[in-house]
Design a protein around this nucleic acid. Structure first.
Lengths: 349, 349
DNA sequence: ATAGTTAACGGAATCGATTGCATAAATTAA
DNA sequence: TTAATTTATGCAATCGATTCCGTTAACTAT
């Protein structure tokens, strides 16, 4: 097959008897080109099927109008929504989005970091892998003045833009919600404690117990590796087999929370009467499981949009490496059937 | 803050007293450079923090080692898995992935198409928007010999690579499954008929009815716009209020199927005894809803991997525009509680 | 020992768009 | 009418990597 030759500004220049400079300026609406000429050139460009070469422009300007995204996994509801928010915002501003997933491996994060750097991205949006502790691989971005926005799973020891939710308050509120429903012995499904999100949620849980005069029992706090369905099942079974089992569970994610509900049902434990459950994220499964899962909703798409905006707004002038600008978004307790003991009581009256 | 200067092959050349050509060749393991020199140069490159500039290389070679992805929405389980598969495969081959979503709008699809083209992507992977009928916006890729892989939602009138599942057989099997479970009056939740996937699934449904001697009733076939939860609810309510309601539903997606189950339960209709339900996609909600939803599983991630491989394997030499190379993947019926009447009967014996 | 090969490397053009610095023409000011 | 601006455009360097042609120098074969 024949492969059509690329139409460049030089072709346009030759065709229209203008210099490439004029063509370039016209296409970019440069003020020193008359409106007449601009219209003429743009018309011809359209007609001749001219399409700008971003690689050439990018090389010249040393930037690619591309936002890099580095996350653990795409196929999680939260992450998919996050990316969706990033993509929408970026595209409206004429930017592209490069994605890469670390699969929660430190090594992959480093290698993806480099690849994204090599593409001369305008900025980087990161949600850290489960394993990441060292942050050296991000330094080259800082050195070059390329903005980094950490989202959700953010580092403690690295100054940069950050977009997070108030995990502490969310954990506190979720726990308080269970307490208000009459729970006295609340278990917690905790995630990896070196990741801010899980650590903060747990802190909120602990403080809520303390401030409401409830005892903290270590054997009611289960530390998960991945907060998976299987892990949740196992943990729930173990908890419910205790001589004095908990009457509530605050899970750091929905997956484990749903598994708890299903496990409890299978074991003949009533939810929420005997065991109230609240999760985190408001995944689609939360509203489908029965009883429907109370949870903490996470403005994922909005977080993506804000992160992208941070990059787009970033200007070399105002940027200062030493500063850590943190955006904290609010969350919302979604009270569904899995925790509403009181409502149930009222209902049956 | 100070912004570090980029380290280029020229810097390496000056530092090591080699020409840029040699540096370039060494970094690419060119055979005409001695192993000693390669080791020396690569060592220095590492030490000086050299990182290749993909924009420059891309401009020179007129390709960016980047795969473009154009889909309707990222935050759908199927799509997220698809992208995940693409990303993994692409990255292993040293390629990047640019994503863009059309939100099912024809206009967005066109504009995203252009933007991706401008980035000189190596190949394009597309799942068509709901609205798309005209295919002109893809022509420029063909003209330039850039491979396009259509996935899942593919065009009828455009020759290219295609990666799909056998929707007809899947629809046939799903319907047959309901018939085998004893259903006599099976309804169908159909999607937009100008999209191959929904059209084929319906065809399979119709043929299964015919071949099993069941009548086709037009009022049991509901055409959806988006197969949403709300639409599903409305449709189910209407069906179940009929004087002789259906005893089975084959839904073209899981969302609508789940809504049918929940609606039926609310109306006091037993699933699967009075109404057997089977969906499509095997979304996470399918195994969570109760009774759990029987469905057709879709190898989303694998489809992504295959699509990416198609692009990577593509060589200008073997490519011919006139040919349409279609890869058809198999699906699997996942029989869960929402359709297993017989198993239930056996269980209660 | 001499022609013929091969190994190892350098020169310089090239990819396409951008932009600082000229320049010519047109307009305005004085 | 002439100098001073303003307007519209062109020239040529530049971004960083690649690659087609050389060119040496070392090596091999006869």
């Amino acid at each position: 097959m024949k492969i059509k030759k690329e139409v460049t500004i030089y072709d346009l220049a030759k065709e229209l008897n203008y210099s490439p400079s004029t063509i370039s300026r016209a296409l970019n609406n440069h003020k020193s080109i008359s409106k007449k000429t601009i219209k003429l050139i743009k018309g011809a460009a359209e007609e001749m099927g001219y399409r700008p070469n971003n690689l050439a422009a990018g090389l010249r300007n040393n930037k690619s109008n591309t936002i890099g995204v580095l996350i653990s996994r795409i196929n999680r509801p939260f992450m998919a929504s996050l990316i969706s928010g990033i993509e929408e915002t970026a595209r409206k501003a004429g930017h592209n989005v490069l994605i890469s997933q670390s699969n929660d491996k430190y090594e992959n994060e480093i290698s993806n970091c480099n690849t994204l750097y090599d593409s001369r991205i305008t900025g980087l949006i990161v949600s850290l892998s489960m394993e990441t502790v060292e942050m050296d691989h991000f330094q080259k971005f800082v050195d070059k003045g390329i903005p980094i926005v950490f989202v959700d799973r953010v580092p403690d020891n690295f100054n940069s833009y950050k977009v997070v939710i108030d995990n502490y308050t969310a954990g506190y509120s979720a726990t308080k919600h269970l307490i208000e429903q009459g729970c006295k012995r609340i278990a917690h499904f905790a995630g990896a404690q070196h990741r801010n999100v899980y650590r903060e949620r747990k802190k909120g849980y602990l403080d809520a117990l303390r401030e409401h005069g409830l005892p903290i029992e270590d054997n009611l706090i289960v530390h998960f590796k991945t907060l998976s369905f299987e892990e949740g099942n196992k943990a729930t079974k173990k908890l419910l087999k205790m001589s004095n089992p908990p009457d509530g569970i605050f899970s750091a994610n929905d997956t484990a929370a749903v598994s708890a509900i299903m496990c409890a049902k299978k074991m003949g434990v009533n939810v929420p009467e005997q065991l109230a459950v609240i999760g985190f994220n408001d995944d689609p499964i939360a509203s489908i499981v029965q009883p429907s899962l109370s949870t903490v909703s996470h403005p994922a798409s909005k977080m993506g949009a804000i992160s992208a905006k941070r990059i787009l707004d970033h200007s070399i002038n105002t940027y200062d490496t030493g500063v850590s600008e943190v955006t904290v978004l609010g969350t919302e307790i979604i009270a569904r059937d899995s925790s509403l003991k009181k409502a149930k009581v009222l209902e049956s009256e």
